[in-house]
Amino acid sequence: MTADQATAEVGKHSEIGSTRRSTGRASFLQVVRVIWLREILIYVRDRPRMISAFAMPVLMLVLFGEGLGNSIATLPGDISYRQFFFPGMVAMQVLMSSVFSGVSIVTDRQFGFLREILVAPVSRTAICFGKIVGGATLALANGLVMFAIAPLLGIDISLEIVAKLIGLIALVSFMLTGVGVAMGSRLRSVESFQMLSQVAIMPGMFLSGIFFPVNNLPVWMDVLVKVNPVTYAVAPIREIALSKQLSELPADAPFQITHVDWFGYTLSTWEELGIVVIFGVAMLTIAIRGVRTVD
């Protein structure tokens, strides 16, 4: 807006009331910021939700890590099942937190607040980004909390590795939040969102290598695991988290336990990340389209 236009705008308003001022237009980033901020604020105030969000994976780690770990003896080298499972648990935490964050669109709709957002003179794409960045931030924070308690759980992980993982977990959070927002923008009740996200999360979780190495599986399961996008998010997290232990593995290990194999071809970390990005962009597109047409 030029200075002249601005003066004219103010002049027009001051005819009516001296208190009136022209309002500008919120920039894309301003909209993302305010939507993001609200997501964080609401989450932080919801203590029970915060606590249960990270109690679940800890329980899983302790129960599965001990119960299941004792009966699984197929991991090569000196890697304990608990050590192997830990990065998977971080991924699981991010997966659940990301997808569930999409419920905020549904609750906004149920409480009517969504209309307040939708009648604002702002782009729907910015609203969608705000929701996704908000959900991804929470998922990232939930994932990182796991590292803070890792020493208590007897997990061997260095700060250097955690630092390396932050960017990766942020990316995975972003991608999986897209799934939640895409769902949230299309569903009208919290109940249906919860049901559907369970249906999406369960296979996503069990067929992703969170609980077991993705190679050396029966063929039918091998196929399912490898079409599951979560697999390609879990693998790089584990590769980095276990980089120390993996480098100590004997050269004649029976099979490698982290990288995904495609018919004998072993994907590199970067190739796995590429798949994560492609899936993330697809989800983002679907989420944006969902929010643009939401009513």
Binding site: R21, T23, G24, S27, R38, F111, A120
Partner: peptide, 24 residues
């Protein structure tokens, strides 16, 4: 029907609105 966010405070509801509408 009500469209305020009941988890936010009264002031936060207004501030959120102001930011969404690009107020200075």
């Amino acid at each position: 029907d009500s469209t305020v966010d009941e988890r936010l405070t009264a002031r936060e509801n207004l501030v959120f609105h102001g930011e969404l509408f690009g107020m200075a």
